[in-house]
């Protein structure tokens, strides 16, 4: 259990940011995984009253507020239209509808869990993280950084790409043994792998739309993969090109889930 002795609703983002500079503070987003980590803090900072829960479409991008829930993403008609149902498909294996109704984008992005289906999909879309102090930062960089004290305000994803994700799981709603997300745009095909089991990362970019199995096999040979209690490195390496090919086929519109 996480414990804290004080629960604060900041009225402005500045206030939230200032509170979060103390080591004794922690931001509460969806409170899904946070409660399991045994953290002991003095102050919980609740972002739910800062209007960060919107999903907005502006110009050539969508902005997903940090407090938008996974269920919001999954059921958002414009997102579904733009990305070919990728959010619904990629997020629906996560635990259950009730869970996804309170789990947030910001919580997923900030935590950078290796098993995150969310991170893999957002990486494939080359999302940018909107941070209060630092401003806009590529997710691909943010993914590699240690946890810091900046406040995630949201995520921006470019339009004009089709996306899809494919995963292997021990059973439905389980954490993935490996997940591959793909997106296809004018600059070609981008692939991200999650549950490597380390943090998700982009493993290929600018691939031709019709990249073939040999190309995926070559990528999979060099991707940093590891083993954990759920699956061995060997298994992940065998399955990686399969998921890449399937995700790629899906964004090309050749294969349904």
């Amino acid at each position: 259990m996480a414990s804290f002795s004080e629960y604060v609703f900041p009225e402005t983002i500045e206030e939230a940011y200032a509170l979060n500079q103390k080591r004794s503070s922690v931001i509460v987003a969806g409170n899904m995984w946070l409660r399991m980590c045994g953290l002991r803090k003095k102050t919980a900072i609740d972002l739910s009253r800062l209007g960060l829960d919107g999903i907005t479409e502006e110009g050539d991008a969508f902005t997903l507020g940090a407090m938008a829930t996974l269920r919001d993403l999954e059921t958002h008609p414009a997102l579904a239209r733009e990305y070919g149902g990728a959010f619904g498909e990629a997020l629906s294996p996560i635990v259950g509808t009730q869970f996804r109704r309170t789990a947030t984008v910001g919580g997923s992005v900030y935590s950078r869990f290796g098993f995150s289906d969310v991170s893999a999909l957002l990486l494939a879309l080359d999302a940018r993280v909107l941070l209060h102090a630092r401003g806009e930062t590529p997710l691909r960089d943010y993914q590699r950084e240690p946890w810091d004290r900046d406040v995630v305000l949201g995520v921006r994803i470019p339009k004009g790409r089709r996306a899809a994700a494919r995963s292997v799981r021990l059973c439905s709603t389980d954490l993935p043994l490996l997940v591959c997300a793909a997106s296809l745009g004018p600059d070609g095909l981008r692939l991200a792998l999650g549950a490597r089991p380390g943090r998700a990362m982009i493993v290929a970019e600018g691939l031709p739309a019709d990249a073939d199995e040999a190309a995926f096999a070559a990528i999979a040979r060099d991707v940093p993969l590891g083993g954990n209690r759920r699956a061995s490195e060997d298994y992940r390496r065998r399955v990686a090109p399969v998921l890449m090919a399937r995700a790629a086929a899906a964004v090309r519109g050749e294969e349904r889930a």
């Binding site: 629960y7 609703f9 509460v28 969806g30 409170n31 899904m32 409660r35 919980a44 609740d46 739910s48 509808t97 009730q98 869970f99 109704r101 309170t102």
Partner: peptide
């Protein structure tokens, strides 16, 4: 532990009471 919060089913074990 599913209950409805503002009419939507949520896991009450994961919703902070102050919220």
């Amino acid at each position: 532990c599913t209950v409805h919060l503002d009419g939507q089913p949520v896991l009450s074990c994961s919703v902070p009471a102050p919220r």
